[in-house]
Structure formats: C-alpha cells, structure tokens
Amino acid sequence: MGTTRPTAADRVPTADAAGVTMPLVGFGTHPMRGEQATEAVLTAFSAGYRLVDTATRYRNETAVGAALAATDVPRSDLFVTTKMPPDQVGRERLTLEQSLTALGCDHIDLWLIHWPPGGHPGVTSWREFVRARDEGLVRAVGVSNYSVALIDALHRETGVYPAVNQVQWGPGDHDPHFAEAMRERGVVLSAHSPLRSTDLDHPVLLDVARRHGRSPRDVVLAWNLHHRVAVTVKSAHRDRMERNLSAAGLTLSPADVEAIDGLSTVTRADRRP
C-alpha cells in the first residue's frame, strides 16, 4: 500500500467557518497589483498556500483571477476571500458580480464587509451578503474590522453571525476578551497584518525565537495558530512565503504563549467594545 507524504498545504490547520473549511494560514495580496500579484499568488499556491485574500479595494482581483486561471491546483482545493468596501452600500450585488468576473470564479469562498460602513453595522449590506450566500454565490460571509457590538447588531437584525471577523491582530493587539467573544459567537477570528503590526525586535519574541531556532516572525504566526486565530500574511518572496507557511509546524510551549500574550498593549479603555 503506497503512502503519500503530507504537503505543506496538508500541514496547515483549518477552522470551521460556519460550515466551510477554512485554512488558518492565508496568503495576503495587498498592495501587490498586476503581474506582480499574479506571479506572487501562483508562487504562493506552489509553496502550499490554499487561501488567497484579496479585496475590491486592492484593485488586484483581475490579477488574482489570472493566477486562479493559471494554477494547476484545482479550484475546489482553493479558498478565495474577497471584501466589499464600505462605499458600496446599496450596490452589494453589483460589487459581488464585479468581483466574480474579475476573479473568474462562479463563487467566492468568503466574502467580507471590509470596514463597518460609516461605523455602522451595515445591516442593509449584511442582508444582501446572506442572500448571496443562500443563492450559492458565496460559501461563507463575514466582516472585517468589526467590534463585538457591531457583530451583535448584525445578529440582532438578521439572526446571522458572520463566519469570520478579520482584524489587525498580533501580540500587541492580543485581547483575550475579544477573542473569547468571537469564539462564543462562533466567529473565526482572523488576523491581518500579523507581522507588520508587531514589534519584531521585542526581547520576549527574540528570546522565544532563539530557543526554538526560528525567527520572531515564525513565532508570531505560530502564536496566532496556537490561539486558533487565522493568519493572512503577505510576502512577495518565495523563500519568505515558505518560511511563513512553515510556522504551522512550530509548537510553542504554554510558557512561550503566556509570555507573548503578555505583550498586549490593549488596555481596558481601548478594548474593541
């Protein structure tokens, strides 16, 4: 009986995003555009990434679509996230159709409201998101940069929680109350800018990294995965893409995690309400 070795993609943990299996490590595409974005996404797929994160705002959906068309990886193995900008309230379906056309897809795996429109929950848009999901144009719907209160408002008005909330999340943003609130509501917490938002020279990270023989970046990504937080990480370089993906194989000790949790700069006053 033959055995196949697990690939880098197989080693990436997954989460249940309202019934849809979502890889916990994703490839971020902002601010790349054009050929650079296409090349980077193709490289990311060949390195083992299966989730690609784009947005209408990034103006690179066509470039990402070119990579989706060119790759050997079957569409069913890939997970495509895109986002509707807040200035498209009232034009949700049009925006989705434009995303589908640009990406060359008949469905999107995860569609997010990129920012709360005008700081409001965006109930009108959310109803349209749910309708698009029910019609099979998107598999899961979620939000980005939302507070707990805004998420609760969506649920109150529609009975539907977002599958995912993508927010800036690194050790400095660590807020166990917020993470717990997401967990309680069945919302997958997803980190954007995990590296860019982190002080990678912090002695705690340097120390943990040294003891594991890894880089502080690897440690930050592994710390997120330890907390079951999805990470969206961008690099235009293959070696870095591979390195970032390999963080899925790094296991931190409870003491490491506790020390990194302690880097949070979130005070009671600036918790996301």
Partner: peptide
C-alpha cells in the same frame, strides 16, 4: 480616499 472613507464614523 480609502484612508478617509473606510474610517468615517459619526462623532469622529
């Protein structure tokens, strides 16, 4: 434009 539009909120 994006830096403004995405962050607008009442009371800002």
């Amino acid at each position: 434009y994006t830096a403004v539009m995405d962050h607008l909120r009442i009371g800002m």
